[in-house]
């Protein structure tokens, strides 16, 4: 029963996807669309095989930046979320700053960061961190605030230390919210890293996009798109997997 439903959950979207590629292939061939405008799936899938090494190398470079930037944004996001949710003073001081940062069109900071920090990984990491920070923070604040206030009466009556209250009451209560924030944010991070790589990189999928455009290699562009979306899906699946392992009660 569960195996059948698992199979269906994987097979149904996969079938839709294959069907879409088939229709695409037929349309491109039927209307004789030029390859530099829209390549047929067979063309960019072939390209993926041909350029396997480059795609893997640059894809991995991009993935590393995503992971480092994501952690660099999520960790402060979680810490500040806890402070904002628990302490009025922290809320009053920090929230205006946080809202200001959120209001910034951060992607436009990219050129500035390049001027400041030059050709290094740092601008990529910093911008990814800035962009992932806020959604993680918002979901975590909601999570930490979802605790019934009377739980604190219970924990105090048990004589719980700060750490016990945090680890046994607050963090597990907030965890589902935190994970849902992670799941969305990690996909956004893919875009951010690729955009910054356009601007200043010798590595990564963004750099490869520029190379493909220079040589009007549209099939390679689509291959990159495909790899980028696979990275996003894989990272999101990792978050889901981690959530299942860490929060087993959600399954029961």
């Amino acid at each position: 029963m569960t195996q059948i439903s698992m199979l269906r959950r994987v097979a149904e979207p996969a079938l839709w996807f294959v069907g879409l590629l088939v229709v695409w292939e037929i349309l491109v061939r039927g209307f004789a669309v030029p390859t530099f405008i829209l390549p047929a799936p067979s063309q960019f899938l072939t390209q993926m095989v041909v350029d396997y090494q480059r795609l893997a190398q640059h894809g991995w470079a991009t993935t590393q930046m995503i992971l480092i930037g994501f952690v660099a944004g999520a960790v402060p996001g979680l810490i500040l979320a806890y402070l904002i949710a628990r302490f009025r003073l922290a809320e009053q001081i920090l929230y205006p700053v946080v809202v200001f940062i959120q209001g910034l069109p951060k992607i436009t900071l990219a050129p500035l960061l390049l001027v400041w920090f030059g050709f290094s990984d740092f601008p990529k990491i910093l911008l990814t961190a800035l962009i992932t920070f806020f959604p993680v923070l918002v979901d975590a604040v909601t999570g930490f605030r979802s605790i019934d206030k009377r739980q604190y009466y219970l924990s105090r009556s048990m004589g719980a230390s700060w750490w016990q209250t945090f680890s046994k009451f607050e963090l597990p209560t907030a965890a589902p919210y935190i994970f849902s924030g992670f799941r969305i944010t990690v996909v956004v991070a893919v875009t951010v890293v690729i955009v910054v790589e356009w601007l200043n990189s010798q590595t990564g999928l963004g750099y490869l996009v520029l190379r493909a455009m220079d040589s009007s290699n549209t099939p390679l562009l689509f291959a990159i798109l495909f790899v980028g979306s696979m990275i996003g899906v894989a990272l999101s699946a990792c978050v889901t997997l981690a959530e299942r392992l860490l929060l087993p009660w959600k399954q029961a």
Binding site: D148, Q151, S157, P172, T173, L247, W249
Partner: peptide, 15 residues
Amino acid sequence: SEVGIVFQDHLLLDF
């Protein structure tokens, strides 16, 4: 701390 408390809502931790 030598006390047990029961509220109207069970306040059990759902995890």
